[in-house]
């Protein structure tokens, strides 16, 4: 298992569209993806509703756990997506 951490940098927070993009990217990989927040909540990274319940806001820490054959590229791709601000401001 590999664990990476990022900070949410888009001002409007983790709303439907970022959750959708994250879920779609996570589903490109075989590895299981779990997402956690600083408060200890966790969700399935391949579930849009699960991701939306996390309440990530601008500046929130996002912990991504990937577990499986392609865990390394999966974790990197998802962290890159967070760092890209999901194409927003």
């Amino acid at each position: 298992m590999i664990v990476v951490e990022g900070i949410l940098q888009n001002k409007t927070g983790f709303h439907i569209r970022p959750a959708q993009l994250f879920m779609e990217k996570a589903n490109e990989f075989k590895a299981g993806i779990r997402v956690k927040n600083a408060e200890g909540m966790e969700a399935d990274g391949k579930s849009i509703l699960g991701l939306m319940t996390m309440g990530f806001e601008y500046g929130s820490k996002i912990i991504i756990e990937a577990d499986g054959d392609d865990e390394e590229p999966a974790a990197k791709a998802l962290l890159d997506l967070v760092n890209s601000k999901f194409g927003e401001e």
Binding site: T12, G13, F14, M52, T53, G55, E57
Partner: peptide, 11 residues
């Protein structure tokens, strides 16, 4: 950010 709070509560 009221909209996010509503969205999170609903989800």
């Amino acid at each position: 950010n009221e909209h996010m709070k509503i969205l999170i509560a609903l989800s």
